[in-house]
């Protein structure tokens, strides 16, 4: 039961930016090609009136390569009480996409977080450094091919056995 206004917005967005739509659990998601996201965001902000970027994150579909990542955006229009979901497929080879920072200021840290944890580069970002991991960290933890880093718990009966396997420099 999508409101009429939202379906109008979605139709105009799909027509203008060669998008497609997907339905799940009563919500429609618009899928927009990666190269058009910046102009689409401007359109969403200026013409459709979604002034609030509520969520920005990524999903990794490893080992699939084309597209390996999906970026997920959610925009809110507070006066109309509407929410709009947008997905953008991103290739797994040198993943990069243009930044939304100039349209929505709070995209700054969200994009830095995605860069840190997924390794997706944002073209034109003003300050693309790691956000949560240490600056010299190797790899991007939330990628599916990055191990969880599980450490075996040691009990009295298997303490020695696991100690041998543990990497050097950890607990004696």
């Amino acid at each position: 039961m999508m409101s009429e206004k939202l379906s109008q917005h979605i139709t105009s967005l799909v027509e203008k930016f060669e998008g497609t739509t997907a339905e799940f659990a009563g919500e429609t998601t618009v899928i927009i090609p990666a190269e058009r996201i910046e102009s689409a965001a401007r359109f969403i902000h200026d013409y459709l009136g979604f002034k609030f970027l509520s969520c920005l994150t990524a999903v990794d579909y490893y080992p699939q390569d084309e597209p390996r990542f999906h970026l997920f955006y959610r925009f809110n229009s507070i006066p109309e009480a509407l929410s709009l979901n947008v997905r953008v497929p991103v290739s797994g080879i040198n993943p990069s996409i243009s930044t939304l920072e100039k349209v929505y200021s709070n995209a700054n840290w969200h994009e830095r977080e995605v860069y840190d944890l997924f390794g997706i580069k944002f073209e034109g970002h003003s300050d693309l450094r790691r956000l949560v991991m240490p600056a010299d960290w190797q790899g991007h933890p939330l990628r599916k091919d990055y191990p969880l880093g599980y450490e075996e718990p040691q009990y009295t009966f298997n303490y020695e056995e696991i100690s041998v396997r543990k990497p050097k420099g950890s607990r004696e």
Binding site: M133, P141, G149, S170
Partner: peptide, 17 residues
């Protein structure tokens, strides 16, 4: 004490390390 429920890449498994 031991890393608790967070047995992963980000958390030190016990501050006694």
């Amino acid at each position: 004490s031991s890393g608790g429920v967070f047995n992963n890449y980000a958390v030190v498994q016990g501050v006694d390390e």
